[in-house]
Design a protein around this nucleic acid. Sequence first.
DNA 1: GTGCCGGATGTGGAAAACCACAATATCCAA
DNA 2: TTGGATATTGTGGTTTTCCACATCCGGCAC
Lengths: 201, 201
Amino acid sequence: MNTPQAHLVDDDDAIRDALAWLLKSRGLPTATYASAEDFLASWTPDTCGCLLLDMRMEGMSGLDCFDALLARGAALPVIFLTGHGDVPLAVATLKRGAFDFFEKPFNDNELATRVGEAMVHDAHRRAVHASADSINLRIQSLSPRERQIMDGILAGKYNKVIADELNISMRTVEVHRANLFEKMQVKTAVELANLLKSPQA
Amino acid sequence: MNTPQAHLVDDDDAIRDALAWLLKSRGLPTATYASAEDFLASWTPDTCGCLLLDMRMEGMSGLDCFDALLARGAALPVIFLTGHGDVPLAVATLKRGAFDFFEKPFNDNELATRVGEAMVHDAHRRAVHASADSINLRIQSLSPRERQIMDGILAGKYNKVIADELNISMRTVEVHRANLFEKMQVKTAVELANLLKSPQA
DNA sequence: GTGCCGGATGTGGAAAACCACAATATCCAA
DNA sequence: TTGGATATTGTGGTTTTCCACATCCGGCAC
């Protein structure tokens, strides 16, 4: 897991340096990139924190960079910076999942605050994701038969009913049930149901 | 429950009539209001569908109307219409939960499409809400003791353990358990867990 | 004050879950 | 070919759930 950082992408050296200084002075770890291409080249699925993206840049635009990230399945919160007010663009970008959209000139305090919120948001997202991953991993370790029995259990059926439906003996259901409880690291059907509910789908 | 409608609020008679005609011609039931005050006066918690709100109006502004609705706990999807591009306003409004934000002149097809989507969204929201209400109603019918026993059950504890923790006999726990299953309309602990998970919190 | 409700408890039994020990069969990879 | 994972079944026994029948107590409303 990479260290959470504010990833700042702007092709204007002066602005980039000023913004980086602002963020660092607020205690926000910051990495800078002179182009969207540079950022994408260094990006990995572990990249986390948040992304500050200038909309208009030489080469790849901020929007193109956002598209590229979405295509790669990134979930990094993105804060856009733009110089020229464009309501439809701002609205469309937010609806596509951008975390925020700042028009220059912006208030330094507001931006720094939002960057901090974005990083908290991302930390929370990663925590939830890690929990979901752990559960999905356990589910994938189940054999097909065990998954069938689990479905029956989650439907609140008696072992006897499950056995009838699958045309196997009750004893076999009991064995699969014990095995899948072991794999899912639960002791009761209720714990299993709780596990499969909370975080993801 | 009121009939789902597009509630159109605009103080410009010509625009309001034109928009209402547009929406009705697309098969979207539409009600019109000449002011935010008129709409708020007719609003009830049952008002549903979606709200089309002109930002700049005589008297109460669209934003004020939005605030008033939020204060009343309304969950109606709101689509804002504005004549003067203002990125910070659009961004702030969307972040506060507006469904969409259109800048004039807008494309009729896009607007009508979004109105349709907003109404679908609201119908879905109401369906989920109704289900959650039904469950909350059942929970509220439980006695305090029954709720305690339910907590224990949802934690996957044996009746024996619950009894020890509450310093009562196992038999009493069994009785409460049966009673609360009756009230919650479930037959097994797993069904109870499933019920309390899906929709709300 | 009588009745209803919530709460608590007991006996006793049927049904289901839970578990240890034991065995067989298939498929697939080392 | 041997071993591991998956799937299947049985015996026998303990624990827990689930339920019918019955009793007792305190608060509260009519």
